[in-house]
């Protein structure tokens, strides 16, 4: 088993498993965020539960952070090793003739997403940790909706979120089927999976963009 984990295919499989986990998390995240469009109370209730439940806070959250860090670190390791495998660069190379731009440049969309996650942490996660565990402020179960709306007031932040979500969509557009292929399922050959991948990579980022724009124009 240790040989498998050290092999190139083992690393691919590990990358795919972390991708599945993150894709499931995205689905959950967008579902909760969408509540904010329909009902402030429902969003506050869900956010309060996620922010105070010990299972979410002390088990799921560390697993999520590990999953995110693992996916990025493994992505960089694979990119670095793959670069080492290349010889001298071609004088003329027509990559567009046989593959999509996104499939060849996952590292760049990934870097934009990484930058976005840092911004997202500064916007929401660090203030949350400060509120609960550093300053230990009194808990107000109704504060979440107001904080969300407040964050989407500046246009620059909304623009940054929109650009990041477009890149996330493109990343998922290749990543969804790629993860299945790495796990031994030929997604490219199976129309259903390909369709689900397309729908997922369009709907999820679009929903996040809608939420950001909705709160920007309705605060």
């Amino acid at each position: 088993m240790s040989g498998f984990l050290k092999s190139s295919i083992g690393r691919k499989v590990a990358m795919a498993l972390s991708a599945f986990f993150l894709m499931f998390f995205l689905l959950m995240h967008v579902s909760i965020n969408l509540l904010s469009v329909f009902s402030a109370d429902a969003f506050n209730t869900a956010s309060h539960f996620m922010g105070t439940n010990w299972l979410v806070q002390f088990i799921m959250q560390p697993i999520l952070i590990f999953g995110v860090v693992f996916h990025f670190v493994m992505g960089f390791i694979l990119e670095f090793r793959n670069k080492k495998s290349n010889g001298i660069a071609y004088v003329k190379n027509n990559g567009a003739a046989n593959s999509s731009w996104m499939s060849r440049n996952m590292i760049y969309s990934g870097l934009v997403i990484l930058a976005f996650i840092l911004l997202h942490f500064i916007d929401f996660w660090f203030p949350e940790i400060n509120h609960k565990y550093i300053e230990v402020l009194p808990e107000d179960p109704t504060r979440y909706f107001g904080e969300l709306q407040h964050k989407f007031t500046p246009l620059w932040r909304v623009a940054a979120y929109v650009v990041s979500f477009i890149l996330l969509g493109l990343h998922l557009g290749h990543g969804f089927t790629s993860a299945f292929q790495s796990m031994g399922v030929t997604a490219g050959r199976k129309k259903t999976l390909k369709t689900i991948g397309k729908v997922y990579s369009i709907i999820i980022p679009l929903a996040f963009i809608f939420i950001a724009l909705y709160h920007h124009f309705n605060h």
């Binding site: 690393r11 694979l78 080492k84 046989n98 499939s103 060849r104």
Partner: peptide
């Protein structure tokens, strides 16, 4: 050799 990132260029 490098690792496959499923671009599909090889198949084409």
């Amino acid at each position: 050799f490098g690792n496959c990132t499923n671009t599909g260029a090889c198949e084409v």
